[in-house]
Write a protein that binds this DNA or RNA. Structure first.
Lengths: 337, 337
DNA sequence: GTGAAAGCGCTAACAG
DNA sequence: CTGTTAGCGCTTTCAC
């Protein structure tokens, strides 16, 4: 019997080949109750023979799709890569598949990507963009399980998995202050104070608190930049050339920190740099970036786990926080003076 | 009229609200022929009012899903990130959405990810894993448009977009030989000769040819490693500690090259290193990796374009090749001797 | 220019 | 334990 490549086998074909009803096939497909081993056997054989693959779209119209969607803002950030690895690992062995929708810039775009996922009937969504609108997220969460990754929202409608940015920032600042730095600048994204509970928002606020607590409120200096290593480089280079008196820089994440390091290398400025996340390249001896390590893989795995719990029916929100850990490397040293 | 959050609006609801038939709504949805401006107006208003969103799964059962799937082997490789950026850009302004399926290790896993995409009724697939089985790909291409990215397959059933690895390798080798290096090693992945037409397979073969052409066939030395910066580091460090006489290393891609650079930095060995791809960090002055630049964004955009052409009906295969370009930085210099 | 009706492939009661 | 049946939300002839 040659297999007709024109048309994929349907549940109907399998049923016919096995001499049973469609319902029977559906049941073995779903491991549902009430199939005799003999029938299971025959049906399975027919499925293999016909190279049968259930159409997810058709299933979607009645039940689950066994797909979870992850919305990601920026593939350039290796921290998200690590979180993805954790998420994938957590899904190994389950029938679930991950699909990722990349967001373009802006909160609207993040939402758009999530909506695209929902339109495609994913069983649940992990949202990573720090700037997706909370209200929009809640609207979606009303009908689809949602886990927000990275942001400290306290919504009742969805779960959150985030790092303890307060503690992480404190550790970074304490390190710098302990080294003897007094004039510490902070490099962050342009819109970071718009999102109150976003990682960058929190880091910014905690930076300010730490400066104030150290009696250096007057030395607070916030440098704004666009996303990406290159933009960070330009910004920091400009600050250095403008004659900043800062001796240390706390960057809101590693990508920015690495751009800053480039400006430092090229100008020979005496500026200690601390990053956040601990992306793989940070540990490279040529970079040697002191940074706040976040367990991205564990966090990603946990996000998946929470999402599956929600898919399974849990309604009470869970807000989980993970502890970061300072990794001291060569990019920080005491000030020259 | 309050919107009922329990159940999303269907085409039926919109039709009722606008006082027309379902077919009419479907037509305005698809911009199909035969709708009066007045009706279009009313229907559109109703859609907005009800926050109507067409269910992709339901559409999938009859027509297109306006989704294209990209299968990606390794998010750790920033080259793929750049290609993704190009692909996304090319889709801007079209009604198409990208979904990405991450593959786990192995050719079977890449295929699995592609099949998962096909099960989800994507209109077409871009396959990036160099190790997905060609036969399996052709089976899939029989029913779904496919573009293979990176590999030089000459299948009649799908298109390819790849860099000219012969030229790129030649440029790298010529640079090293021109600098005066004679004992040049090659760092590649364990399975790179299994896939004949894969980028790494071609680079390996061309490395050997270049060495032979330079009369250094006896100095050919191939170091095998696993994927990832860390594995490359271990391998190169071991080679150095074993007392290799190589004075230069051509790495199959930048991630490996960067791992190699770490081993060089830590041991103080005199080993020039060339990479491939030109990932963003390669240009960082602290890394300064000489490498073969590939226009990943342009290639990604082209892959999308070819795929859309296939979706629109083209059957004749297109195999496109892009020219790489050597970028000389500080990681290469003449041998000490 | 507009609408009625027949499915697409699957799941989930419900009978037998 | 097995089969029958009624949809899920949308597209698409084909009449009107």
């Amino acid at each position: 019997m040659t297999i007709d490549q024109r048309r994929a086998a349907t549940i109907e074909d399998v049923a016919a080949a096995a001499g049973v009803s469609r319902a029977a096939v559906s049941k073995v497909l779903r491991d549902a109750y009430g199939v005799s081993p003999a029938m299971r056997e025959r049906v399975t054989a027919a499925m293999v023979e016909l190279e049968y693959r259930p159409k997810v779209a058709a299933r979607a119209m009645r039940g689950r799709t066994f797909t979870i969607g992850i919305e990601i803002p920026d593939f350039g950030n290796q921290f998200f890569t690590r979180m993805l690895g954790g998420a994938m690992g957590a899904l190994g062995g389950t029938p679930y598949q991950i699909v990722i929708a990349p967001a373009e810039e802006g909160s609207r775009q993040g939402l758009r990507a999530i909506e695209a996922l929902v339109d495609r009937q994913v069983d649940g969504v992990i949202a990573v963009s720090p700037r997706v609108d909370q209200r929009g997220l809640e609207r979606i969460a009303a009908s689809t399980p949602v886990v927000m990754f990275g942001r400290h929202d306290l919504s009742d409608d969805y779960d959150t998995v985030a790092g303890d940015d307060v503690a992480g920032t404190a550790a970074a600042m304490q390190h710098l202050l302990g080294l003897g730095h007094a004039r510490i600048a902070h490099l962050t994204l342009n819109e970071s104070d718009q999102a109150e509970r976003s990682p960058h928002g929190v880091r910014l606020r905690e930076y300010q608190s730490a400066m104030a607590a150290a009696g250096r409120a007057d030395d607070v200096e916030v440098w704004r930049t666009d996303e990406g290593q290159d933009a960070a480089y330009e910004t920091v280079r400009a600050a250095i050339e403008a004659g900043t008196t800062a001796t240390a820089l706390f960057a809101a994440h590693d990508e920015l920190a690495i751009g800053a390091l480039r400006a430092v290398a090229e100008t020979g400025a005496d500026l200690s740099v601390v990053g956040y996340d601990d992306v793989p390249i940070a540990a490279h001896p040529a970079i040697g970036l002191t940074t706040v390590h976040q367990p991205g893989d564990v966090m990603g795995a946990r996000a998946v786990q929470l999402l599956l719990e929600r898919v399974a029916g849990r309604a009470a929100p869970v807000h989980e926080v993970f502890q970061p850990e300072l990794r001291v490397r060569t990019s920080t040293r005491p000030p020259a003076a």
